[in-house]
């Protein structure tokens, strides 16, 4: 289904998630190539966010969720017994649907992840680098001590990206990062995602098919918890293999 690459960032094998008796994700296997952008698309409730949250063990925080199967990261199964989710989440960062900056200063938002992970070098320098990487530095450099909640929605989301980048993750998970933003802010975030590809592997969940088409290299289409199709984005949007994929991307349902 997917073009195998020499460098694999992440690999799911037989991954399923149950909430109580309901299966939200059913037996999904896929490979995420390094330094690419992979989009997960599908109608509401198809399990795309749940699948994304398997990759940094965020589902651990939901008591009712049960994960089975394997996620391989650097050859190690993230769900093996000895793996600490705290360590996983530092290496696989996350940006959420609704911008969720801490109710602290802009500086402290970025510095928090560094402090808790025992960052020993120049804090201010790293905060600046992170804000630059998230294309936010010029807008906030004169008010780093202001409360982050005073920023606009789009700025808050870029701050959340800067915060995630600061702790040097290899992979960035983005759960509908632009769905709460206006078109201008969305386009800035999309440009940023394109820039970040050079250094990071990005998996983005989106309900916006144009967005998937614009930003991603590979696209996975999910439907009721199953992976229906996974291929190069261009191919999926021009020549989908499955009838249901075609029906979804042409807007006949979803």
């Amino acid at each position: 289904m997917t073009t195998p690459t020499a460098d694999t960032a992440l690999e799911a094998r037989g991954l399923s998630v149950h909430y109580g008796d309901t299966a939200a994700v059913r037996d999904i296997s896929l490979t995420i190539p390094k330094n690419r952008i992979v989009a997960f698309i599908g109608p509401s409730g198809c399990g795309k966010s749940t699948l994304l949250r398997c990759f940094n063990r965020m589902n651990d925080l939901i008591p009712a969720a049960r994960v089975s199967g394997e996620v391989l990261f650097r050859g190690q199964n993230l769900y093996a017994e000895r793996v600490d989710p705290v360590e996983v989440r530092r290496q696989i960062g996350m940006v959420f649907q609704k911008p969720n900056p801490f109710p602290k200063s802009i500086f402290e938002n970025v510095a928090f992840g560094l402090r808790i992970n025992g960052f020993k070098d120049d804090l201010a320098e790293r905060v600046e680098q992170s804000l630059r990487a998230a294309a936010l530095w010029d807008e906030v450099k004169d008010r780093l001590d202001d409360n982050a909640l005073g920023l606009s929605g789009g700025q808050q989301q870029r701050l959340c990206i800067a915060r995630a980048l600061a702790v040097e993750p290899e992979i960035l998970l983005m759960d509908e990062p632009a769905s709460a933003l206006d078109p201008m802010a969305t386009s800035r975030i999309e440009d940023l995602i394109g820039d970040l590809k050079r250094h990071y592997t990005i998996i983005i969940v989106t309900h916006n098919m144009q967005q998937a088409a614009r930003v991603s290299d590979q696209t996975a289409f999910l439907y009721i918890g199953e992976l229906i199709e996974y291929s190069d984005t261009e191919r999926m949007f021009t020549n989908p293999e499955h009838e249901r994929t075609e029906a979804y991307i042409t807007g006949r349902f979803g």
Binding site: N56, M58, L61, V86, E87, R89, R90, G93, M94, F96, K98, N100, P101, F102, P103, F112, G113, I116, N117, C160, R163, A164, V167
Partner: peptide, 15 residues
Amino acid sequence: VPGSLREASYGLGAT
């Protein structure tokens, strides 16, 4: 306290 704050913190590798 909003759950989104906890998620943001855990997402950065906080205990």
